[in-house]
Design a protein around this nucleic acid. Structure first.
Length: 716
DNA sequence: CCATAATTCTTTTTT
DNA sequence: AGAATTATGG
C-alpha cells in the first residue's frame, strides 16, 4: 500500500522530509495527526528502527489514537516505539534512573489534590492565616515555578513581597515533604529528567542516541520544562519534527508558551517550515465563522486556511431566557437530529467550565438520551476511589504519610487528632515515617491490617487483590451497611475502578501493583471501554475536545463572563487566549454548529444576567440563522468593559415588577445614548410612574439611571 | 471521638 | 445550589 496515496503535496513534503529540524504549521483540520502518523510509518518503511522513534502528545487519548493509526498504516504496532504523553515519558525516564535521582524504587505519584493537601498542612504548621495565604494560590504558584524550572533556592532572591516570601518557604517545605514521602508530583515528572540530564551528560547522550527521531504534537502548548526537555534530547541529531498551530494555544494558564513554536527557527538552524492550509474537516460556513473570530486577535500571524467542502448549513444561534430553557433547546435539537437518523455519537455539547455540565446531564437524563461526560469531575478524585488508592499506595510505600493520614481512620476506628499528632511527633523525633512510628493503641490494629495485606500482595491478580483490600480494610462493608443511594453509587464507582484495573491487566498482561499505581495517576481521561460501544452524546469542556472532531457541535453558554470567562476579562492577553479557545471549539465542527446562551443563569446559587459573548458578535451575521429574537446587533453596541457589576438580579423582584413594561435584561434604545441593557429596575412604592431604570449603555455613556417612561427611551 | 449544625467557599481551563 | 470545611454539643 502506498502511504502517500491520500496526501496533498505539502503533507507529502512533511512526511518524507527525513533528516533535520522540521516545523509543520498545521491549521485546524488540516490533517495534522495524519501527517504525524504517516511520517512515523514512513520512517519505519525507510528502515529506521522503531526503537529510535519518540513521539510525544499531550493527552493519553491522542497517544492511543496515534498508536492505532500507525498500526493501521503499517499493519502492525511495534511496542519498541515510544509514543506517550510528556508526563508518562518523563515517568519512564525516572523509573529507569530513579537511583541517580535519590528516590527509593517504591516512589509514588501525587496528584494535584495530594499536592494541595501537603500545602495546606504546611501552611497550618507554619501558623499562617490561610485567608491571607490561600493554599490553592500558593500551590499554583509553586507549580508554575516548577514548570519554569525555578528552584526554591533561586526563587528566594526574587521573593520581595511578604507573599512571595511565604511562597518561598512553603515551596521549600513542600519539596522536602514530597521527598520524605518518597513521592513525585506531576511537575516532577518533567523536571527530574531535566535535572538528571544536566547532571549526567553520559545518561543524556544515551537517550539522545536512542531517540534519534523525535516528533512533538501540539508544540504551541509546551511549557518551559517540556521545551527544555525536548531541546536536550534533540540537540545531538536535530531530527525533530514539531507540529502545532499558534491559533490553538490554550494552555497559557499552566505555563505553556506558544512562542516556543515561533522560536523553533531560532533554536534550530536550517529549519524546514511547512504550512498546511487546507482544512478537510469543516464546511466553508464553519471555517468562515472560525476565521471571523480569530482574526480579532492582534497578537497573531495572518493565515489562509480554506475548505473545499462547500458552504453547508448556516450556524444556528439561540439566546434562551434561562439556563434551563437553553438546555431544553439543545435537547429538542438533539431529538430533531435523531429523527433525521443522525447517531448520538456524532454530537457533542461543549462548554467553558465543568460546572456547566450538570444541568445538561439532568436534562438528558430526564429525556432518556444516553450521554457520556468526557473528563469532567475526575473519576480518580472521588472520595471512595481516593480512599482505596490511599490504601494501595500505603501498602506499596509505607513512607507515604499523606495516604496514611487519609485512611488510618477510614472506616472509623476511633483514631483521632490526638493520636495523629502523637504519631507525627514520634515520626519526626526518630526520623521515621508515621507508619513505622505506630507501636500501640488502636492504630496498631490498623498497622496489622496493612501488614497482612502486604504479605498477600504478590499472591494473586490485581483485581483479586483490590477486592481483598476493599474487604480487609472494611471500606466496602462500611458502604454496604449504609444502605443509602449515595453509598450504592460509591460501591458502583469502586466496581468501575475494578474494571479499569481489569482493562489494565488485559492490556499489559500480569501487572504489578507498582506499575498500576504509577500509571493510574496519569490517566485522567477515562479509558471507558463500555462507553465506546454505546451510542451517546458527548459532553466536555473545550479544552478536553482539542484534537477531536464531531459532525454536530453544540457550543453552549456563550455569554460574557462565562466565555470569555470573568477571570480573563481584564487582560487583553487572556481575552486572546479565550478567543483561541473559541476558535478551537468552532473548528471541531464538521457539518453543523449550534451556538446557544442564556439571558439569565444561576451561578453560585444566584441569578445573573450576562450579555451574549463578544465572540458570537464577531461572527458575520450572514453565517448565522438566529432562532431567538433579533437582538444580537443591539447588543453589539454595548461596551463590554462597562462596569456592570451590579447586574445581580433578585428573581422575586422580577415577579413584583412583571406588571411593568421593563424587566432586568430588557434591551432598550435611547435617542442620545443608543442601545443599552436594563440592569436594574428601581420601583417607587408610592408612585409606579416614578419607576427608574438603571441601564448600561455603550461607553462613553456607561450606566445611566433614567425614568422608565421617558420619551427618548424605547424598548426593543 | 464523632455526629450534626453552621459556616464558608466555589467556578476557569489539565497532565 | 451544592460541596467542603469548621464549630458545637454530646
Amino acid at each position: 500500500m502506498d502511504l502517500l496515496e491520500n496526501l496533498n503535496e505539502r503533507q507529502i513534503e512533511a512526511v518524507t522530509f527525513m533528516e533535520g529540524p522540521l516545523l509543520v504549521l498545521a491549521g485546524a483540520g488540516s490533517g495534522k495527526t495524519k501527517v504525524l502518523t504517516t511520517r512515523i510509518a514512513y520512517l519505519i518503511n525507510q528502515g529506521i528502527n522503531p526503537e529510535n522513534i519518540l513521539a510525544i502528545t499531550f493527552t493519553n487519548k491522542a497517544a492511543h489514537e496515534m498508536k492505532s493509526r500507525i498500526g493501521n498504516l503499517i499493519g502492525y504496532y511495534s511496542h519498541n516505539m515510544q509514543i506517550s504523553t510528556f508526563h508518562s515519558f518523563g515517568l519512564r525516564l525516572i523509573k529507569e534512573n530513579y537511583e541517580y535521582l535519590g528516590y527509593d524504587k517504591n516512589f509514588v505519584i501525587f496528584d494535584s489534590d495530594d499536592s494541595l493537601t501537603i500545602v495546606k498542612k504546611i501552611i497550618k504548621d507554619m501558623n499562617l492565616d490561610k485567608d491571607k495565604f490561600n493554599p490553592k494560590a500558593i500551590r499554583n504558584k509553586i507549580s508554575s515555578l516548577k514548570n519554569d524550572l525555578i528552584e526554591p533556592s533561586s526563587y528566594k532572591k526574587y521573593a520581595l513581597t511578604e507573599f512571595d516570601e511565604v511562597v518561598y518557604k512553603v515551596y521549600q517545605k513542600y519539596e522536602d515533604s514530597l521527598y520524605e514521602n518518597n513521592s513525585l508530583d506531576f511537575d516532577d515528572l518533567l523536571i527530574l529528567p531535566i535535572k538528571l540530564f544536566s547532571k549526567r551528560k553520559d545518561i543524556l547522550e544515551r537517550y539522545q542516541e536512542k531517540f534519534k527521531y523525535i516528533l512533538i504534537d501540539e508544540y504551541q502548548d509546551t511549557n518551559e520544562a517540556q521545551y527544555k526537555l525536548t531541546k536536550m534530547l534533540a540537540s545531538r541529531f536535530k531530527n525533530i519534527c514539531c507540529v502545532g498551530d499558534v491559533d490553538q494555544a490554550i494552555y497559557g494558564f499552566r505555563g505553556a508558551n506558544y512562542k516556543n513554536i515561533l522560536n523553533f527557527e531560532r533554536d534550530y538552524k536550517n529549519t524546514k517550515i511547512i504550512n498546511l492550509e487546507e482544512n478537510y474537516r469543516s464546511t466553508k460556513t464553519i471555517l468562515d465563522a472560525a476565521n471571523a473570530v480569530i482574526k480579532n486577535n492582534k497578537n497573531r500571524k495572518e493565515k489562509n486556511l480554506f475548505s473545499n467542502l462547500g458552504i453547508g448549513e448556516k450556524i444556528e444561534y439561540y439566546r434562551a431566557s434561562t439556563g434551563l430553557s437553553e438546555v431544553s433547546f439543545v435537547i429538542s435539537k438533539i431529538k430533531d437530529l435523531m429523527s433525521d437518523g443522525i447517531s448520538l455519537k456524532d454530537m457533542v455539547i461543549l462548554y467553558r467550565t465543568n460546572a456547566q455540565s450538570r444541568i445538561f446531564e439532568d436534562g438528558l437524563m430526564k429525556s432518556s438520551i444516553p450521554y457520556k461526560i468526557v473528563g469532567g469531575i475526575n473519576f480518580y478524585g472521588r472520595r471512595e476511589i481516593k480512599d482505596l488508592l490511599a490504601y494501595l499506595r500505603l501498602i506499596h510505600n509505607i513512607h507515604d504519610n499523606v495516604s496514611l493520614e487519609r485512611v488510618i481512620n477510614v472506616p472509623k476506628r476511633g483514631i483521632g487528632e490526638k493520636t495523629l499528632t502523637n504519631l507525627i511527633n514520634k515520626a519526626n523525633e526518630n526520623n521515621i515515617s508515621m507508619y513505622e512510628a505506630i507501636d500501640s493503641g488502636k492504630e496498631l490494629g490498623f498497622k496489622k491490617i496493612i501488614e497482612e495485606l502486604k504479605t498477600l500482595k504478590d499472591t494473586m491478580s490485581l483485581v483479586e487483590y483490590i477486592d481483598l483490600v476493599l474487604d480487609k480494610s472494611g471500606l466496602i462493608n462500611e458502604l454496604k451497611n449504609e444502605h443509602s443511594l449515595e453509598a450504592d453509587i460509591r460501591i458502583e464507582n469502586l466496581e468501575e475502578f475494578k474494571s479499569v484495573a481489569r482493562a489494565f491487566e488485559e492490556e499489559n498482561g500480569v501487572i504489578s501493583l507498582e506499575d498500576f499505581l504509577l500509571n493510574v495517576s496519569l490517566i485522567s481521561d477515562n479509558l471507558d471501554v463500555k462507553d465506546e460501544v454505546k451510542d451517546s452524546v458527548s459532553l466536555m469542556t473545550i479544552h478536553a475536545v482539542k484534537g477531536l472532531e464531531f459532525p454536530y457541535v453544540f457550543l453552549v453558554g456563550m455569554e460574557e463572563r462565562l466565555f470569555p470567562h470573568v477571570n480573563s476579562l481584564d487582560s487583553e492577553e487572556d481575552i486572546e487566549e479565550e478567543r483561541r479557545l473559541c476558535y478551537v471549539a468552532i473548528t471541531r465542527c464538521k457539518t453543523k454548529l449550534f451556538i446557544t446562551n442564556a439571558r439569565q443563569r444561576l451561578m453560585y446559587g444566584i441569578d445573573q444576567i450576562n450579555p451574549a459573548s463578544r465572540f458570537v458578535l464577531e461572527i458575520d451575521e450572514s453565517l448565522i440563522n438566529n432562532l431567538s429574537q433579533k437582538e444580537i446587533e443591539n447588543f453589539s453596541r454595548i461596551d463590554y468593559n462597562n462596569d456592570i457589576s451590579e447586574e445581580k438580579v433578585n428573581i422575586e423582584e422580577n415577579y413584583l415588577n412583571k406588571d411593568l413594561d421593563y424587566q432586568v435584561g430588557d434591551f432598550v434604545y435611547h435617542e442620545n445614548f443608543g442601545a443599552g441593557t436594563v440592569i436594574e429596575v428601581i420601583k417607587n412604592k408610592k408612585n409606579p410612574k416614578l419607576t427608574l431604570l438603571k441601564i448600561a449603555f455603550k461607553l462613553p455613556y456607561g450606566i445611566k439611571t433614567l425614568l422608565y417612561n421617558h420619551k427618548s427611551l424605547k424598548k426593543i
